[in-house]
């Protein structure tokens, strides 16, 4: 019952949060002192032509009217027309969103499957050589800039060793699009060769994204495990002779994961931000790359659409995190 209340409560917060996000994004992008219409109309446009374009896009209206229209349109799934490509932005995004989501999911998956066990080991072997090595790795993970790591990976694995493709998402056309997630589509097709190719393209960008995420997960899991291991229930479980393996990997870990799950939610946001850079370096046809070209072309609608979609993904992930919290920690849900 309490769990249901928690879920409903979090869901009710969803709409106001998204609305707030839209207002902020809209306001900020309209405060930028650049004139997108002049840019879109070209250098040779006359004043009349620019004014006509302004009316066409509704930019002659007061800002609150523009905001009202924008929110209404977005609510109907209409992000407007790209000032640059002259196509509806929804189409542009629909083709790119799966690429970004796939990359982010894979990165989070790698980060969590490596980071959680390493965090536990680093806590149970506190101050051992293993812990020190992991500390060096995690600190570098947090300190190294994503674009630099991406280029380093490219130089080593793609250029020098030739183990992976340099960039892109797939060679040739890729699998038949069902979900837009190439890994899943390739499996659905049952085509091992394409699957291999897609995976090979995925490794470097996913690793670049996963590295700092893994570092964060290791550090938070380590802190969580250390806190749990000094608790009275661990003392009790030891005194009653529970096997060490069960104490650490079942009883301690589940307590430690409460903190780690929160971090994974925040990491998702960081990954979407890092994704902009990583996608640009690896020429990954996702939202990040789209955002970069939108920014370079002062494409208002494109930038706002990216900010809102990224924000919505972040909000949804944190909604899921709150619900997962309730599932892991009965004190929240019962």
């Amino acid at each position: 019952m309490k769990f249901l209340v928690l879920v409903v409560n979090r869901c009710l917060w969803f709409l106001p949060t998204v609305l707030g996000l839209m207002v902020i994004t809209f306001t900020i992008s309209h405060l930028i002192p650049a004139d997108p219409i002049a840019a879109a109309a070209g250098e040779n446009a006359t004043a009349e032509q620019i004014a006509a374009l302004r009316v066409k896009f509704g930019l002659d209206q007061p800002i609150y009217v523009q905001l009202y229209r924008y929110v209404l349109a977005v609510a109907q799934g209409d992000f407007g027309i790209s000032l640059y490509t002259q196509r509806p932005i929804v189409f542009d995004i629909a083709t790119r969103l799966p690429a970004t989501l796939e990359l982010t999911f894979v990165a989070v998956l790698i980060a969590a499957t490596l980071g959680i066990p390493l965090g536990v080991l680093s806590a149970t072997h506190r101050n051992s050589p293993l812990d020190h090595v992991l500390r060096v790795i995690t600190v570098s993970g947090l300190a190294i800039a994503a674009f630099w790591l991406a280029i380093l990976f490219q130089l080593l694995f793609a250029m020098k060793l030739g183990w992976t493709p340099l960039q892109g998402r797939v060679d040739g056309w890729g699998p038949d699009s069902v979900t837009g997630f190439f890994l899943i589509d390739a499996v659905l097709m049952g085509d091992l060769e394409i699957l291999q190719d897609v995976a090979a393209h995925m490794i470097l960008p996913a690793a670049t994204l996963a590295f700092p995420a893994m570092a964060t997960i290791v550090r938070f899991t380590r802190a969580g495990v250390l806190e749990a291991i000094n608790s009275n229930y661990v003392m009790y479980e030891e005194a009653m002779g529970f096997p060490r393996r069960i104490i650490v990997w079942k009883y301690v870990l589940r307590n430690a994961l409460i903190g780690t799950v929160t971090q994974i939610g925040l990491i998702f946001g960081i990954l979407i931000a890092n994704g902009v850079v990583v996608e640009a370096v690896f020429d990954w046809p996702g939202l990040g790359l789209y955002a970069v070209s939108s920014i370079l072309q002062s494409d208002y609608n494109g930038i706002m659409a990216f900010a809102i979609i990224a924000g919505v993904i972040f909000i949804v992930v944190n909604l899921l995190v709150d619900i997962t919290h309730g599932l892991i920690d009965p004190r929240e849900s019962r």
């Binding site: 229930y233 479980e237 030891e238 009653m240 589940r254 307590n255 009965p330």
Partner: peptide
């Protein structure tokens, strides 16, 4: 431990694992 010698802790609040 547990089998021949068992234990009753001082703190019954913190000695149960809270999430099981």
């Amino acid at each position: 431990r547990g089998r021949q010698i068992s234990f009753i802790p001082q703190d019954p609040y913190g000695s149960f694992n809270p999430v099981f």
